[in-house]
Each structure stands twice: as structure tokens, then as C-alpha cells.
Amino acid sequence: MSAPRRPTAPAVKALESRKRFALSHKVAPPKGNYRWVYLWEWPIRTMHWIAVLCIVTLATTGFYIGRPYFMTSGEASSHYLMGWVRFIHFAAAGVLVATAVIRFYWLFAGNQYERWPALFPVRPRDWVNLVKQIKFYLLITPEEAPTYLGHNPLQQLSYTAMYGVALVQVLTGFAMYGQSNPGGFFYATTDWIVRLFGGIQPVHFVHHVLTWWFIIFVPFHLYLAIRADHMERTGTISSIISGGRFVNKDIDYVDSDIV
């Protein structure tokens, strides 16, 4: 094998720096039997991590609002604890809604793994694979998981359910927020929710209980992500940071043909 012509030192440096600061997802051609697939574009990744921060903030402040676990003493005029907690809660809710707007836009503007058909197991084989995936997680068939590049059917269902629960949280949250200004925008637009639940107290209750849904989701989500990362060795966790996974060329991925 003849040695290739070596580039000059400054040219290497330029190439390196371009690689380091490149904003596009283009990477060097794959070596070996692996290829890099780009799944999650920057709006999705940004949304994910902002939503994480928002949900942690919302749950913490929300539980304080539901049952104040710190007290202040002295004159009321020298404190504003609940006032600030509520402010942070409402502000974080506003940011979460903003991420939801971006996510909604990206249902139509995103790639094949982000667009709205990817939220649901739409094809018959996805339902077959849903059963296979559940069997895999129940260790009934611990070797045979359906291989998906994007989300597998079980992920699709559970993540879409999270969007649904988040939507209920947003709606009930604004219904409660609107109560302070009767006749105002939020009051007028959320009146139907209060009527639907039969009063504002059931709205409080649903909003409170669904917070636990998010908290219960965390161990499952973290565990299954770490588990997949550990067992498949394709960079599952880094895909929500860098946007892509390294996948084996020999494996035929179920959803590699969706357009």
C-alpha cells in the first residue's frame, strides 16, 4: 500500500478546527462496520433538556404550592416565599409551553423520526413489534428485541402518552392560573375545563396527581435508556446530546425505510 500524500501541518490544523466547531451534523465517513445515523435534530434535543429542567422545577415548586414544606417566621411583610415559588412555577410553565410549541412545529418540520407519524405505531408490524418489545423487557425473550433506529413502538406509546399528560398538566395549570383574574384571557379560555371537571378542586387534584406520573416516569426512562446504552453499545444516551447513534451496518433496522 503506497503512503498517501501527507497534507501540510496548517491544513491539518484548519481541518481539525473545522471539525471541532462544525455546526452541521456531517461527520467523517464511518470506519469499520458502523455507521452514524443522525436522529434528533437540535430543536428536539434542546427541547428535551429544557423540558427536563422545567419539569424538575415545576414538580419541586408545585409540591411546595400543594403542601408548603418550608415556613417563614417574623413579619409577613419581610418575606415573599410562596410568592416567589409561584412566580418560578408560572415562569417555568411558560417556558415548557414554549418548548411544546417548538415540538409541535417540529412534528411537521422535523425528520422522519421526529414527524407526527413517528409518535404512533402506525403500521401493523409496529404492533407485532410492540408485543415483541414487551416480551423483551419482561425477559421472556431477552435476546430478541426489534431493532429500531428511532423510537420503538413501546417508546412511541409511552413518550406520546407523556406529551398527552403534559398537555393535561398545561391545560389544568392554566385553568387554575385563570382563577385569579375572572373574565380575563386565561379565565375565559379555560372555563370549559373547570366545567368539565365539575369544579376547580378536581382540577387541582388532577394536576397534583399527574405530577406523580412524571416522577414515576423518571426511573423507568433513565433505567431503560442506560440499559439500552449498556446492552446495545450504540450510543443511545449520547443520541440525545449529539443527536446520533452509531449502528451496526449488518443489522436491518425496521424503521430505516420510513420517509
Binding site: P68, F70, M71, T72, S73, A76, S77, S78, H79, Y80, L81, M82, G83, V85, S180
Partner: peptide
């Protein structure tokens, strides 16, 4: 929103 004890609510005194 009209309560004379509202200041204690905002201050975190229950």
C-alpha cells in the same frame, strides 16, 4: 384575592 390573611400566604406563613 381579597383575604386579610393573604400577606401570610405570600410570605409562606401557615
Amino acid at each position: 384575592d381579597q383575604c386579610p390573611r393573604r400577606a401570610h400566604y405570600d410570605a409562606g406563613q401557615y
